[in-house]
Simulated scan of single mutants.
Amino acid sequence: MNQFAKLNVAIVATTTLYACSNTGGFSDMAMNVASSYIGQYQVTEIEGEAIVADSKPELSLNDDGTLTGNTGCNNFSGKYEWVGTALSIGEMATTRKMCAPALIGQEQKILGALASVKNAKLEGLDIVLIDEHNNPLIRAAKSNE
């Protein structure tokens, strides 16, 4: 598929998701179009830096419009929505357990990056969450659920 065709698919997917997002979930049509984004991912990079060794942060874009995951320390959850062709991620609720300083720092970076997400793109099976200037914030590999 060429880049133009990929862009058209992404625009159709995001527009369809936006149109269906007020129903508390996605319609069958939106689910078919958006299925490439929905899933569980293992975070591999945060703002271009590797994750803390053995921390295994993850995130899941769920078909009901929720975003859930783990920072390598605490769990988080919130909502996401496609607004036109842009991705909007709401405020995240988190658990509050104590962790090593490196993991707390990673958690702050992940939560800060999620607050700055304006869009997403797929690179193979990886998802890249990007900011308003198209800079990568979080890169994650799709899990074999």
Rank of each mutant, 00 (worst) to 15 (best):
F4A: 13
K6C: 02
N8Y: 00
V9I: 03
T15L: 12
T16A: 14
L17E: 07
S21Y: 08
G25A: 07
G25L: 02
F26T: 00
M29R: 08
M29L: 12
V33F: 08
Q40W: 06
E45C: 05
E47N: 15
E47M: 14
A50Q: 13
I51D: 01
I51H: 02
V52W: 04
A53N: 10
D54Y: 14
D54T: 13
S55I: 01
S55K: 01
S55L: 03
E58V: 15
L59Y: 03
S60H: 09
S60E: 12
N62A: 11
D63N: 15
D64V: 10
D64Q: 07
G65V: 00
T68L: 05
G69H: 05
W82E: 01
G84D: 08
S88P: 00
M92Y: 07
A93T: 11
R96A: 07
C99D: 02
A102D: 15
G105I: 04
G105Y: 01
K109Q: 15
L111D: 05
L111N: 05
G112L: 09
L114W: 06
V117A: 01
K118R: 10
N119T: 10
N119F: 02
L129C: 07
L129F: 15
D131R: 10
H133E: 08
N135V: 14
P136G: 13
A140G: 12
A141Q: 11
